[in-house]
């Protein structure tokens, strides 16, 4: 069992949890993820690590409520426990040797984009960051990004905060202004990563994306997380989660990501109803 030492509602549907997991905290690197189960008989879900504090022995995650499991997770309070917390899984993001990079984060994906941004920044790279959200109410981690980047663009789809537009608009503008990058790193919804990759391709800019497909064990045993990269089948949990965005078969990845949508929608509704009953 793993104790929740801090819970913070960043936004109505976005929550931060700091979990006591000293061994994982000691090893975790930017880009890696954990798998958790909220309770016994719970589903195993992968979530990327936002921050690891080896001195405190804690690992912090940020998640958005999208299904039954994240709904249950959101109802956990400080001092309560998670059933399982496994990690760090996947390969760490490659940070070394980049002189100038652009990190693009979308929505709750910014929780993962941030540690990568910070790692590039701490390694001495010039870092441009583009973070995008649906609207003002969903903006997270702006101050963190500002502190870890040389240029920051905050975008909202509806223009209610920052600049009006998509992250790809801002990225394109930065490139058109004459910025060249050793690497563009994108993390967020699948569609966003796809279009970031399409944006950078004509410029020949190396683009790395962090994939988060459906998975069970996270150690390579089930093969459920397989994606097609450059025509080859890869397991995101052991070969990734970072891949060359120009090589990923996005249509396939999007379809596989939606494999259990109907089940998830139903389970989410049922869970919400359960919590509503409890409140009464």
């Amino acid at each position: 069992m793993y104790r929740i030492v801090r819970r913070e509602a960043l936004r109505p549907t976005v929550t931060l949890l700091e979990i006591e997991a000293p061994l994982i905290a000691k090893k975790a690197k930017p880009g890696q993820f954990i798998i958790l189960r909220v309770d016994e008989d719970g589903e195993r879900i992968p979530l990327t690590i936002y921050n690891a504090d080896p001195a405190k022995g804690t690992v912090t995650i940020i998640f958005q409520i999208v299904g039954a499991t994240t709904e249950k997770l959101n109802h956990k309070k400080e001092g309560e426990f998670l059933q399982d917390f496994v990690g760090p899984l996947g390969k760490a993001t490659e940070i070394e040797g980049r002189k100038k990079v652009c990190v693009v984060g979308g929505g709750v994906g910014c929780a993962i984009a941030y540690p990568v941004t910070k790692a590039f920044h701490d390694a001495g790279a010039e870092v441009h960051a583009v973070i995008g959200f649906k609207n003002k109410d969903l903006v997270i981690l702006e101050d963190d990004f500002r502190a870890a980047s040389d240029v920051l663009k905050v975008m909202t789809d509806d223009g209610s905060y920052g600049e009006h537009g998509l992250v790809t608009d801002a990225l394109k503008a930065l490139i058109e202004e004459g910025n060249t990058y050793d690497e563009v790193f994108a993390i967020g919804p699948m569609m966003m990563m796809k279009f970031v990759s399409l944006t950078t391709k004509p410029y020949g800019l190396k683009t790395v994306v962090s994939m988060s497909p459906i998975m069970i064990d996270g150690t390579g045993m089930c093969g459920g997380c397989r994606i097609s990269v450059g025509g080859e089948t890869k397991f995101a949990c052991v070969d990734g989660p970072d891949f060359d965005g120009h090589q990923v078969d996005w249509d396939l990845a999007v379809k596989r990501g939606g494999m259990y949508k109907e089940f998830e929608r139903h389970a989410h509704e049922e869970t919400c109803n359960l919590f509503k009953q409890e409140v009464k």
Partner: peptide, 11 residues
């Protein structure tokens, strides 16, 4: 082989 509905026996 990566279509939805193709599983490894392990999974």
């Amino acid at each position: 082989e990566n279509l939805c509905g193709v599983y490894s026996a392990n999974e």
